[in-house]
Amino acid sequence: MGRKMQVGVRVPPCQPAREIGDFACEVEQAGFDALYVPDSQTLWRDAYLTLYASAVRTSRIRLVTAVSNVITRHPTVIAGLARSIDEAAPGRFVLGLGVGHSSVEPIGVAPSTGAQLRDGVDQIRRLVRGEQLTYGEGRARIRDPRPDGIPVHIAATGPRNLRLAGAIGDGAILLSGVAADPLRHAVGLIRQGAIEAGRDPDDLQITVAAHTMVTDDIERDARILKPVVATIAQKGGRGALELLGIKVDVPAHVPEVTPDLIHAEDWDLAVEVSSRWISDADAAAFARGFCLFGSAADIVERLHVIADLGITSVFMQHVGSWDLPERLVHSVGREVLPLLGDAAHE
């Protein structure tokens, strides 16, 4: 690997913040570099409170929102929250921001536009540094600022937001898996955005998210990915799936599964329902193409490949939204991270 690959894990705040804080200790002790917490107020507990609870229980790992947004939270609110977590964990907090799909859609609000995201990031940075901003007839300034600022990473999938991430972010977060050709294309657009903005693209951190499982039988275990594949098809990702030979048409709404396929409260039911459209062979192809499924050695080899594409960090996801990724943390910590050695994390 060129750069040192950072390895993190996504932890949904599906339990009280104190319990997530305890689990964060396990994540740190297992050797991970970062903890990523999603921000969706109708699904889970509060992301920032959860990260604060994790901050006071850990000493090394980075703490990242994956991701928050500037629609459900005003930039002044985010600035205050970011400053508070950074005080508890100096230099360890990273603000991940995106358009806010899972936060805004349940309440009937549109995701942020590129202009709104750009403006929100600018406001947050200026507020965190202690600048005074004007809002209509009001004036706002954050007391006890963080003059050095806080890193802001932009989640992106489409071409415009990928270029935007390169233009304004300290890093980018890619949520579309580890398939080499789409990653190469995405990294190119991020670097293009940075160059067009007069920035050095080599200064950017690029993180990719991937469902991960240490397994000796991909065909057997890939079935649990069917709701993930179905959701990608629902959300406009059919073209990406077709690159793997997966051709499916999934209805926009599946009423049997609550609240939706990707956040199903009953994952076994979601797998069963998704089997109407996603075959076992489709799930296995997705696992091999977009995910980190396989033996520890297979996963390490895949991490080397994506590092060579310009990826600096990966955050691993287990399948599901309503339990902690205990099996993932323990298996990766025990089998994968030791193989990466100092080339992956310190």
Rank of each mutant, 00 (worst) to 15 (best):
Q41N: 09
R129A: 14
P182E: 06
A53H: 05
R184W: 10
M213F: 07
F286I: 05
D268K: 15
V77Y: 04
D268N: 14
Y135C: 06
T258S: 12
S112I: 03
A209Q: 11
P111Q: 06
M213P: 00
G171H: 03
V56I: 15
A89K: 08
A30P: 14
I306A: 04
I154V: 15
S102F: 15
T212Q: 01
P251V: 08
E105Q: 05
V67P: 00
P12T: 14
G171R: 02
R276K: 14
V336Y: 09
A284F: 00
L174Y: 00
H263A: 13
P16C: 10
E346W: 11
R139Q: 15
T215L: 07
A344S: 09
A287G: 09
A296I: 13
I150E: 01
L35Q: 12
P151D: 07
P182Q: 08
L244G: 06
L244F: 04
Q205M: 10
W44Q: 00
C14E: 10
V250T: 04
V319F: 11
A222N: 08
E19R: 14
D203I: 13
V77H: 01
M213L: 12
G294A: 12
G136T: 01
D217T: 14
T157F: 15
W44C: 00
W322F: 07
R118A: 07
G289Q: 01
A285D: 09
A283E: 06
G177C: 13
R223G: 13
G169N: 00
I262N: 11
M1S: 05
T76P: 05
E335T: 14
I142S: 07
R118S: 08
G120T: 10
A140G: 09
L204R: 05
V329Q: 08
A230G: 12
L183M: 04
D260H: 03
I173T: 13
A24G: 04
D148Y: 10
H318Q: 14
G289Y: 03
T50H: 01
R220L: 13
A186S: 14
V305R: 15
R334L: 13
V336P: 05
V229R: 03
H318R: 10
E242I: 07
L243Y: 06
I78E: 05
A264Q: 05
A155H: 06
D33V: 08
F32W: 05
G294N: 12
T207D: 13
P75V: 08
V109S: 04
S68G: 01
V27M: 07
P13Q: 08
Y36V: 13
D46I: 07
W267V: 04
V332M: 11
D217Q: 14
E265K: 15
A281W: 09
R118V: 03
G91V: 05
S40N: 10
I311V: 15
Q15M: 12
D39N: 12
S295P: 04
H253G: 07
Y135W: 10
V152E: 00
D342R: 12
H211T: 02
L175Q: 12
H318C: 05
D39I: 12
I232S: 06
S84K: 10
A210L: 11
